[in-house]
Design a binder for these strands. Structure first.
Lengths: 85, 85
DNA sequence: CATGCTTACGGATCACGTAACCATG
DNA sequence: CATGGTTACGTGATCCGTAAGCATG
């Protein structure tokens, strides 16, 4: 698991589609497909339902997204605490 | 910043030396030197004092290690919450 | 001279982007 | 046929390990 993967699932959840998440992360779509697949494989769970129009989080996905947000916030705090103790 | 880097600083702080942290992480020393340097460079702060015998965290290093531990714990919780909701 | 950190270097792996493909409304 | 996700493939970047170097008690 990597922080990039956590950013990825949060972005997908908020944008509702890989295409838009990709634009937001300044990356192309295929890497996002692969990051998500890798995380789903590592966790052994499907995190998003593939709809015709986009992506919708599964219940497990919802939980992962919520915890990912907290982890990323803690990382941001770490960064700012170093600059401004 | 990566989770591996956070694991690295925690291991260095607990072992007091790169050599021992390297053994604990099943890796050789040079990668640890580089991981630490990369993180210090990214944060713009020296995290460990280089002693003749080993490494001692600076005040900033202490804070980073403490927050890193919390982040890594949150990541572990995420993993277990997925297996056992 | 033993311990421990750092730098150099070559090679394997990873992760990207482009392109092609597939599915659905 | 427009939108959006996935798969294939080649290339550039990353990261490791070995080896050599350097400092200190």
């Amino acid at each position: 698991m990597s922080l990039e993967q956590l950013e990825t699932v949060v972005a997908i959840a908020e944008e509702g589609a890989l295409v838009r998440a990709a634009r937001r992360l300044h990356i192309s779509q295929p890497p996002l497909t692969r990051r998500l697949q890798a995380l789903e494989h590592e966790l052994g769970t499907v995190l998003f339902e593939r709809l015709p129009r986009g992506m919708r989080p599964t219940p497990a996905g919802e939980r992962v997204v919520a915890e990912a947000r907290q982890i990323l916030a803690a990382v941001d705090r770490l960064r700012t605490h170093v600059e401004d103790p």
